[in-house]
Design a protein around this nucleic acid. Structure first.
Lengths: 335, 335
DNA sequence: TTGTAAGCGTTATCAA
DNA sequence: TTGATAACGCTTACAA
């Protein structure tokens, strides 16, 4: 049996499809009696509007595309949740895609969103993304685009960004205050704003404390647990490092495990600070000092900015910086 | 500037839209020369097919709805990933929704998927779901539906389920073997198959070892870290429990923290086993013994079953049980 | 091999 | 307040 359409409702009621459409869409140009009849019949037939037909006719859809590197990261999953809390009540649906940190998947996902004629896109790019033409082409097509967290200033439109610089600065300053002096930095691709900013914060804190910036203390491509582990082993075997500021909590785990595997202690021998406050951070032994990002605020602002653009046609190209918070726990306190 | 359509391509080339459509859809009924011209022009105009129009006309879509309680659970996010690995190459797109463990959201999401005329649905129901009429109505509408993990046998269609019974049985048997005798069980709503099966495994292991099943040792609504903590405190203050089998890793954290807050030690005083192998399980101190589910297999099988139904019209109503694995770590070994 | 024409389900415009 | 009609972009008999 086929799905009920407004035509079925119209026929059953002896009215025209236009009337049914008006009744269902809450138009005022329908009598109360007709509306009631239509609603009852729709209910009875289990009618579900065909949004594809509706979108096609209206020339716009109520679906918003959301593209993130991975949904199972604490930060991203909470941003998604915050975005849904704004967008769903406003009548929009979310089409969630993942790039799995691959540029290729990111391009594919963007294409899919275009083909689905989403009303707008909220995205954070992959770790591999170092060229933004495929993202620019979105805004060129006049599709409202909000970047959050990982974002390029070369792309038009709003950017909702965590205060990575201050987060890193606070983290490293805290390590220095704790008495650590030879602080290394494990980070991701510096083509990603998030990591270049954290790196900048790291350098600034060092500079401020008149500590030297040593090239061999800064290791790129050290953002997973595995690479964090390897780079830390290598670091401890070849340098005099006494603390590590990791640009992510995953590499921080790797670092801690590497340190312990060498028979050294965190925080007594080596201090460690992470970034992101993944759920496991406070469960580690020692508890991981890390930087907490306000995912709720980021998602909230991103969703609101998008609605603003879609519904009011505003042309914002703002960068909004969301404050972060240093959570001092055990992994960074000497005594 | 409006988006290019096949009509634009047709006009630019002096052919008809039908020809363009055929050329683009890989029909054999087009000359090689025409196809080439069409493809070039499409590229030049940045043409992206309008899937809404296409789906509307064809009467079917290539979008699959995926509904899970939360995307940021280790198991679910990995199932999603496995499903995408099968579905994307097969030409389908995923529309991911979350119920956030609420029945209300689940109903809403299902409605949204219906309105979007998805070609099929892969879902795992919320913790609140104890009536399945809204899910049955999906299959009544003839939309292919695969249930995985949390699933009701009263709903038609394939179910891909973890071997919760065996997992629980192995876990409790292992506790018994380790020398624990008064084993409590922290679990979720027993209206959810997953929890009722784990409970069954727990009872079976006890029975097999001729250990009594004590009512006060089984606590429902103890599945989050917070409730796990509270129930464990209460348990330890009122009973002689010497081990806890938790139906989830989150409540296991709560349990461990409660045990430690009372000045007792895991595993020496109280043994703890979890379920799910969340990433933090091996990072806890002591490392958490838990049951690992094969998310990859579950997603793989679910996706394949769905394609089978959509493309071959097979009418399967199988229950497929996916083996699980007990990961013995430190939290359950005495001495 | 290509063109013609109808229709998927909805909604906007215009007329009644 | 309701109806008639066309159109959104695409696909597919059927015809040429």
């Amino acid at each position: 049996m086929k799905r009920a359409t407004i035509i079925d409702i119209a026929k059953a009621l002896g009215v025209t499809p236009s009337t049914v459409s008006r009744a269902l869409s809450g138009s005022v140009r329908v009598s109360v009696a007709t509306r009631k009849k239509v609603e009852e019949k729709a209910e009875e037939l289990g009618y579900q509007p065909n949004v594809m037909a509706s979108s096609l006719r209206r020339g716009r859809s109520d679906t918003i595309g959301m593209l993130v590197p991975r949904v199972n990261r604490h930060f991203f999953s909470h941003v998604i949740s915050a975005v849904e809390q704004i967008l769903n009540p406003a009548g929009y649906n979310l089409l969630i895609c993942q790039s799995y940190e691959r540029l290729y998947n990111e391009k594919l996902a963007l294409q899919a969103l275009l083909k689905n004629r989403v009303a707008g896109i909220i995205m954070s790019h992959s770790m591999e993304t170092d060229n933004f033409d495929h993202i620019k082409s979105i805004t060129n097509e006049n599709i409202p685009l909000i970047q959050f967290d990982r974002a390029s200033a070369t792309v038009a439109g709003p950017r909702i960004i965590n205060d990575n610089f201050s987060g890193a600065y606070m983290a490293v300053k805290h390590l220095i205050k704790s008495g650590y002096k030879r602080i290394a930095h494990l980070t991701g691709a510096l083509s990603v704003n998030v990591y270049s900013e954290r790196y900048r914060g790291y350098r600034y804190a060092l500079e401020e404390a008149s500590l030297p910036l040593l090239e061999e203390y800064v290791l790129e491509e050290a953002i997973t647990k595995e690479t964090g582990f390897e780079r830390t082993r290598q670091l401890l075997e070849t340098t005099e490092t006494d603390a590590i500021f990791c640009a992510g909590d995953f590499s921080a785990i790797g670092a801690i495990q590497a340190i312990q595997s060498l028979g050294m202690k965190v925080p007594d021998d080596i201090g460690v600070v992470g970034f992101a406050n993944e759920p496991f951070a406070e469960l580690l032994t020692p508890k991981l000092t890390t930087v907490e990002q306000n995912a709720y605020d980021v998602g909230n602002k991103a969703a609101r900015a998008l609605i603003e653009i879609i519904e009011k046609g505003s042309l914002i190209t703002d960068e909004e910086i969301i404050p972060v918070r240093l959570l001092v726990r055990e992994s960074s306190i000497k005594f």
